[in-house]
Write a protein that binds this DNA or RNA. Sequence first.
DNA 1: GCAAGGTC
Length: 686
Amino acid sequence: MVTKVLCVAEKPSIAKAVANHLAGGQVQTRNVQGNPYVKNYEFSYNFPTWGQCSVTMTSVLGHLTSHEFDPQYKSWRSCDPSALFEARIDTIVEDDKKPVAENIKRQAAYNKVLYIWTDCDREGENIGTEIRSVATQGNQSFRQPGNTVRARFSNIERAHIINAARSPVQLDEAQSNAVSARIELDLRIGASFTRNLTMSLQPMLQQRSGEDRSQVISYGSCQFPTLGFVVERYIRVRNFVPETLWGIKVMHEKDRIKVNFNWARGHLFDRMAVIILFERCLTAKTARVTKVQTKPTSKWKPLPLTTVELQKCGSRFLRLDSQRVMQVAEQLYQKGWISYPRTETDQFDRGMDLRALVQKQTQGGPWTQFAQDLMNGGFSQPRSGRNNDKAHPPIHPVNFVVPASLSQEEQRVHEFVVRRFLACCSQDARGSKTEISILYGSEIFNTSGLVVLEQNYLDVYPYDKWTSSQDLPDFREGEVFEPTEARMNEGQTSPPGYLTEPELIALMDANGIGTDATMAEHIAKIKDRDYVQTRPRARQQRQQGEEEEYEPAEAAEPDAGAGRGRGRGRARARGGRGGGAGRGGGATTGVQEFIPTTLGVALVEGYENMGFETSLTKPFLRKEMELRMKAICEGRKTKAEVVHESIEQYRDVYIRTQQRLDSLRAVTGTLVGTPGQNGILVSGTE
DNA sequence: GCAAGGTC
């Protein structure tokens, strides 16, 4: 008698891959009525645990169930928003998931073992328990521990999958409970604060703007900190006070080459001190070469590609915002050209056959020759980063596609993924760096030169720039010369720029705001809510010695009235009459910068003016949530305890918000609707 | 009309 096993994966692609690995060719594929993506794969397999089995492998599409308030709370006017802190929450299957749930229920009736193949992360454990609960409706016996198991796997290589099939483990209830807690808290707090903010502030907004569109003012544990980052930078720009600074410039011409030496101190904010040091230079008359050192140097090839990195590079190099990059990457994934685009992993599994993947890229495209060279001995194992989500490999091309068959945007993203992958499999660029130091008076000045000897990965990865500098003349240690030119210069510190999209993504990543799959959505959300606006950043004045930025091939878009360039936020001496910011001159870089609207600033300042110890706009609350989830995972706390203590914390903020809503109204009243500024607060320094 | 997280 064969045992019947029902396997359920988190997504159709995993179901298909696992079925093919286990079945060894003998697979019967059946459609599932009502859903075009989910398939049932039938085959037989000999599990060590149960012997020869008849297996049905299917999948869900992410979370199977949703959570909503009891219908009596559906209308916004049905209750005080704070009632949502304790309102009953129903677990339901949305209409579009019903065919998926029905399929599992029906299959469950015929099967003896439920084998869960969701991703091995917290959400995966939770989706696993959702699957078990739906399956149990069709077959009570899955309630018994031995009848429901899960697979432990971190990639879909054949050997790895077969090993996972041979050693089933239990679902991790604690991890699943941690996710349940997060779901409940996000729903209760998000819905109550959103209703309260919207109903309290909307009348004023409409009155001011004269519009009657129903604008939602939402609160979410991710969208608010995201807004907070944008506002914080904006305030820093607005409050920036330039400081005057002084430096010493030394130039010497030798062998018809002009060499600029940089003062080791950079600059000082004390004019008299610089005058004294400068005069010592002039008194000394001659400078002496104290160091001439030439040594090999290299520029490291990039790390394997994660989602966060893809989004940052998309903003920087491809002229696509993070949400668009993800949409395009998703399309490329579904068409089978690239691997799963949502991954935190920046290390390739040792067992992966990377050469086979490189080989596929020798079939065409502008990188053909480079890929061929890698196959002819240039291949080098990619570097390993520090992150591994144990669910997905780094993003890489999985097949060859003729670029012309893709849309324009798809081509850009695909080309980036391929070039990044080939760069990872190539070698670091190598060069030779010469450093020269001189002692002039009491002061040290340095200069350096670079000769790029081997481009290596740079040949396929134009997004990185590393170019040879002008040749340095021949200096000898101990050599004495009288500098051609020495002068004191005055400059000013320049303000930081507004937050750019790659910076925002980096901040969210570092502070655990959102996941690789959702960060772009949170950014899109605060734009959609009219909390922030974006505009192309004006091109920066290039500083001498600064690395060149990669510029997209397309012509720059016209400047959307931005007008002014911005400094980079680092103190830097500039020549001339202390002209602070560079002049954009109408040209823009590809990168977008974020500026909060009056509404966005009002929300953040309104909450901050209330002076709570728990700040809704700072990332700490989300970090706290992360710690509490971890406590549940490690069995130090129960879900009920965490939900209770978090709700009480937010209830406190809610009550005090209510009491101080006047403060919020007052600030909003002064800021919203500043005439003629299209909702953008202009910097106070302008 | 509300959140954030999966996935298509």
